[in-house]
Design a protein around this nucleic acid. Structure first.
Lengths: 200, 200
DNA sequence: GTCTATAATTAGATAGAC
DNA sequence: GTCTATCTAATTATAGAC
């Protein structure tokens, strides 16, 4: 492996470890030492590759949100009403499956979204805004949002309803006895979300 | 003010500050020094009144979840189907209004619910389990949960959909231009949730 | 590119003055 | 009941060896 490849491989291991750590404990409570240990390197190397904890967080967010973008299916253009609804249902199901497999996205959003600071603004402009307009476009979640003013409400309703059960999986197991990480539970949740947001 | 009253007043100020801090930054990232400063006392006094940070967290959780219990309206017994649906809608609206005024509940839940540890189990047994059975009882959210197996999914869908927009209020403002803390936005979200989970 | 060593803060918990 | 002082441990970021 060349030195450039070695560099990229190490950086990738650090970013992967960072995603897990930041999602698990939030930005402030995560330590670069812990992230380094998870990645099998030393703390000094983390600040060598990523100048600061903040820079590392942005790299981690870019990676996990990029994964989301690549997963969601495209919306069909110039389709019939029935086709639009079917496509919206499938997009909702795809999001639920992604939220189940990557609850980190939700944790990044909640962790950064509650403070009016630079990280929040960066996340909105870089990772969220590009998707928001598409998700709330006519024919998508618009079916539940009667008027345009309801679009933000429908957006957060969908994200919250589709993600929370996976984001607090240990609690869900303890409280309800249901393990939301099992495939059957994921599909059940996807069906419920599709039916809830795009009813017959 | 007697010494006992002084004691209770100080304890209350510390608990109030703790609720804000824990909801704002999570358990691990919150410092007892910061909480003490918010309450206008010194750090030593916090560990005097509450033996440990963990004990303080439990006191804070008890307070904020107790507030929730006292806010939700009762469910009518032996009512007609239409009455049951109307009551379920009103209960959903009441929850949304509470989530808007106290997004701390959601943050406590997400912060503690993702780890399989003592705090999570304590929260489930003390604060969540008593409400879960009631919320998922027949006629309540049960209207959206076709069979009993769907009850946990409907429960987390409702909590997530009804809370997230308020939990990430700064992000919502930046992303959508909507300020979810305004009364009109709260009522709009309450209406959407009621219609979504108990459709006509 | 990776590691070791260290500087400057900050953390929770304890002990003792008043 | 409240505050000050202190102990031990852990934090980020930096500097330098290899």
């Amino acid at each position: 492996m060349s030195r450039a490849e070695q560099r990229d491989a190490t950086r990738q291991r650090i970013v992967d470890a960072a995603i897990t750590a930041f999602a698990d404990q939030g930005f402030a409570a995560s330590s670069t030492r812990d992230i380094a240990a998870r990645a099998g390197v030393t703390q000094g190397l983390v600040t060598y590759h990523f100048d600061s904890k903040d820079t590392l967080w942005r790299a981690a967010a870019t990676q996990i949100f990029g994964l989301l973008v690549g997963t969601l299916p495209d919306r069909p253009r110039r389709a019939s009403n029935a086709e639009r609804r079917a496509a919206a249902r499938e997009q909702i199901r795809a999001y639920v499956r992604f939220a189940a497999e990557h609850p980190e996205v939700f944790h990044f959003m909640v962790d950064a979204g509650r403070h009016d600071d630079d990280r929040m603004r960066w996340l909105v402009q870089t990772c969220l805004a590009p998707r928001f307009s598409e998700i709330t476009a006519d024919g998508g979640i618009g079916s539940v949002a009667a008027d345009r003013a309801a679009a933000p409400h429908a957006y957060y309703a969908l994200l919250g309803a589709g993600s929370l059960i996976f984001a607090v999986a240990p609690e869900c197991r303890e409280l309800t006895g249901v393990d939301p990480t099992r495939r059957a539970a994921i599909e059940r949740h996807a069906d419920l979300m599709a039916q809830l947001f795009v009813p017959d």
